Simulated assay, not measured.
Amino acid sequence: MSISVRDQFGKQLAKLAKEDSRVLALDGDLGNSTRLDSIEKETADSFLQMGIAEQNMVGVAAGLASVGFQPWVCSFATFLTKRALDQIIVSVAQTNFDVKLVGSYSGLLTSNTGKTHHSLDDIAIMTTIPNMTVIAPGDARETVAAMKAMHRTVGPMYLRLTRDETIPSFLPDEDFEIGKGKTLGEGTDMLVVTTGSTTYRVAEVIKQMEDVSIAHQHFPTLKPFDKELLIEGARKVRQVVTVEEHYKRGGLGSIVSEILSESLPRKIYRIGVPDNFFGCGTDKELLEATGLSVEAIRKSLIDLSLCKKQF
């Protein structure tokens, strides 16, 4: 059964706010969509409505952090990471304040809102900022575990969340350690590397791949990245493939390419969103249009296993 990532996010943040008076939720007037309204309903004193003013919201969060609070700032990923980028860098990252930034509705699946709401460059943006930790959990249970780890770890962090509500809690039920990846399956022909909501789709694809031995690694932390696990997995295979709901350039594929080019050169094929803007559409339509549906990913992996695509 699928469990909504955004529902669990709202419930867990409300729980943290009840348990810790330092935790405050700052809302960019999107609480009904992001589920930040859970805090407003359950512990109103911990909820601050900032309106559609992302730059101001991040500035207020920095001020709150400077006097001992732990603000969690939430908006749609594309608005938070681009409209407030200067404030994130100057007021949060350069000061190294304990501000948690939450980018909801990341990637393509933003409820038929179109290209203005798609967030396909936020990994590239946030992983280049010094002092910033970047986390993209794969399911609702991992989201809760990641939030617990974020709460007990001081420093600026970006949490990338999906709106996709078709994902069950499928990942191993274990504690979340910031900076550590997970091996979900072993194989000898190909290593597929994923992050965030794409991990579930790829796991479903691998179940259908009978004639190819595929290893699967999931990296819920994109910065700092678990280089050791990646290199260990890449040593055992002939091909490395990355799959992500983000532009190919600057995201997971770029991170993996950089690491392996320096430490263990391997042929790498990147499956991600093409260098283009995409219009309105259902989740299914958008995933098919960008080659990220289960069937499209399966076809790409089959083609690669048959050496029909060249690196």
Rank of each mutant, 00 (worst) to 15 (best):
T78E: 11
Q55H: 06
M57H: 08
L48P: 10
A61K: 02
L48G: 02
M132R: 04
Q70M: 06
F69N: 14
D29L: 03
A62Q: 09
L101P: 11
T110C: 09
V92P: 00
R83M: 00
K18P: 02
L109A: 11
A65Q: 11
K82T: 13
G155T: 08
K100S: 01
V67K: 14
Q12L: 05
A77N: 15
Q49G: 15
I125M: 03
T116V: 14
S46R: 14
A61W: 08
M57V: 01
I125A: 01
Q12R: 13
D20F: 08
L109T: 15
A53P: 00
T113K: 11
T153N: 05
Q87A: 09
L85F: 01
V102K: 01
L13S: 07
G59K: 14
T143K: 00
T43F: 15
S66K: 11
S119H: 00
K18A: 08
S38R: 14
S33W: 12
V102C: 05
D139R: 04
F76R: 13
G31C: 04
T113N: 15
A44V: 13
I123R: 03
K100V: 10
D20M: 06
V154Q: 15
I39K: 13
T153H: 02
L85D: 00
P137H: 01
R152C: 12
D98Q: 07
V60S: 09
V144N: 03
L120D: 00
H118W: 02
N96Y: 10
K148P: 06
I125R: 01
V23R: 10
F97A: 13
S111W: 09
G51Q: 08
I129A: 01
T113F: 04
I125P: 00
T113H: 11
A14G: 05
N32E: 14
V144A: 04
G28K: 03
D29Y: 08
T81G: 00
I125Q: 02
M150F: 15
A62K: 11
N96D: 13
M132F: 10
D86C: 01
A140S: 11
L24H: 08
T78P: 11
V90F: 09
